[in-house]
Design a protein around this nucleic acid. Structure first.
Lengths: 337, 337
DNA sequence: GTGAAAGCGCTAACAG
DNA sequence: CTGTTAGCGCTTTCAC
């Protein structure tokens, strides 16, 4: 069981001085004589004194704890972001409490509520694919919590945001597909309300338009990123009178699944149908054929988000216009196209 | 900036009663009249009162926060474990602070130190591949912190431990290789001091022995799980007068890298050399050929570890013999063997 | 049933 | 330089 904790009072008693003096000695306050400080430090060491951060937090009203809200830590994309965030804020002494929403808006809300009670110093949030109501975040904002939104952002608040190279990503990918001779390019998109999905679709459409290819609504399918949706989308496309000669997706996992599906059907990639993804997941280079994809650097996104948080934390009182940061990406061509 | 927090004193003043009564009403203490309670609850709601967990933690000396120490959240294995832990302890109201050691024993030590100061209620720890000194954990133990060790465990302490199916995993895999006609089976092991690596190697050797195959030291290489080590091990084996006809590894990433290496050299898998892994990483099924591997369920390991922690937290005062839990696994045969 | 007071561990403002 | 006092927000005796 837990033993009695050594407190500054123990040190004070042992030395026959007041606890304020002990506190001063311990906090490098100049108003302590050299010998007193020495004695305190020695006693602290011999008693194995450990300051109680809880008491400190209560006084300073700061915990040096940051809440990180993500949908799923098992997705390499989010794991990398978390890693970046931790490395960015860690050197300033901040720790992170990671909370997973499991893509449930309700759990997301509960997690935020709980971390608010734990008095974290700020929140870095990536919403679920289904979050449409942002009242819980607005509450945080009103309460004055430093906020940073990343990847799946909340646009209704003037807070720092870090996003992927959405429009450009699909524009570039589609352009590449067209340049390699494809004309009937299908798009596996995400939920219609999702900002990132909309932007990526716009990039796709812009590339088509620019090359004089008419947009065919039959070639665009919206998913909620579930495998079932991918399967039915592919089946629908293959049953078309004129099936696509290329499929691009707004996320790598979808692209990889499509590769598997097409291979199982004996369809050659890229000869019959080219496939492209988005994100450059670790697995994209391992599948056969390698998945052409638009690289994102989630670790960098985390680093940037962490830094934004640090900034927000520092200049609490300025209200410089919060910006939206776009993490640059680039196309990685592999043998799937 | 942060606004003034509503406290029970605000409620008390508004109602003209004492803060003790407010506290009682809020904590469902029976010694409050129904009407007072009602008034307090209403006032709390209208003021949007949020209890300050910090103050509570200071009094109760418990934070409902658990420290999770892992080498690298970007490894799917650890990400899955973390997920399991969170889901196990989350329903009991515990949150987790994840700290990455980046495989550095020094950082591991610092992280533990820091979380100790933050007064987490317990630690779930997976050590770095290079951790050999466990003094920092022993300190925790002496201080009475509930501890659970998983995957890369500390054997020097009587605490709950959750490990993979190490011996059996490589025994089964090697057996399978032998049954499919292989005789010169190489082993890509881990650091010599690492318990899991030793056990897996023992499983490998047991299978050889049982089949009357003499152990050839040239066929066993120890790595620190770095790609360079894998490359040089493979080169060394291929340069042997009698190269191996199979390679088994104690971790999937190694197996996958070997597959890539052999393919690049035009060596056929499994015809020329069979390859097997350990863990069933998500990618193992995606490479070509699919990697035969011994499945572990890291998510389950996390669940178990989380439950052990919950138990430790509950029965603080009993000292039932702490056990070592082995997460069962099974061989998944794919086309690499 | 309710209020006053003490205390969790620590810092900080105020006297000397 | 050092001790005393107050207070962070809350629970918990102890009186009444």
């Amino acid at each position: 069981m837990k033993k009695h904790q050594v407190t500054i009072i123990d040190i004070a008693k042992n030395l026959g001085i007041s606890k304020s003096t002990v506190s001063r000695a311990l906090t490098n306050n100049p108003n302590v004589s050299a010998e007193t400080r020495k004695a305190v430090l020695e006693m602290a060491k011999s008693l194995d004194y450990q300051p109680n951060m809880l008491a400190l937090s209560l006084i300073k009203n700061e915990t040096r704890l940051l809440g990180v809200i993500i949908p799923d830590i098992q997705k390499p994309f989010f794991a990398a972001i978390v890693s970046g965030i931790q490395h960015a804020v860690g050197r300033m002494g901040y720790r992170t409490i990671i909370a997973q929403s499991d893509e449930s808006p309700q759990i997301e809300k509960e997690n935020i509520q709980a971390l608010m009670l734990s008095r974290v110093d700020g929140f870095l949030i990536c919403h679920t694919r289904d979050t449409r109501n942002f009242d819980h975040v607005k509450t945080l904002y009103q309460k004055g919590f430093p906020l940073v939104s990343f990847a799946r952002i909340c646009q209704e608040l003037p807070i720092p945001k870090v996003v992927e190279d959405d429009f450009n990503g699909l524009y570039t990918t589609t352009q590449h597909l067209i340049e390699t001779g494809r004309r009937r390019i299908a798009l596996l998109a995400g939920p219609k309300h999702m900002r990132a999905s909309k932007l990526r679709q716009q990039g796709y459409m812009a590339a088509l338009r620019q090359n004089g290819i008419t947009y065919d609504q039959d070639l665009v399918e919206h998913t909620r990123f579930l495998p079932e949706h991918v399967t039915s989308a592919v089946h629908k496309w293959l049953a078309l009178p004129k099936p696509p000669d290329a499929i691009c997706t707004i996320y790598d996992a979808g692209g990889i699944q499509i590769i598997q599906l097409l291979k199982n059907k004996g369809i050659r990639i890229p000869e019959d149908i080219a496939v492209a993804g988005f994100g450059n997941d670790p697995v994209a280079s391992l599948v056969e054929p390698g998945l052409t994809t638009f690289e994102q650097r989630p670790y960098e996104i985390g680093l940037i988000a962490g830094k934004q948080m640090l900034d927000t934390l520092k200049k609490k009182f300025t209200d410089m216009p919060p910006e939206i940061t776009i993490s640059q990406g680039k196309l990685i061509v592999r043998s799937s196209t």
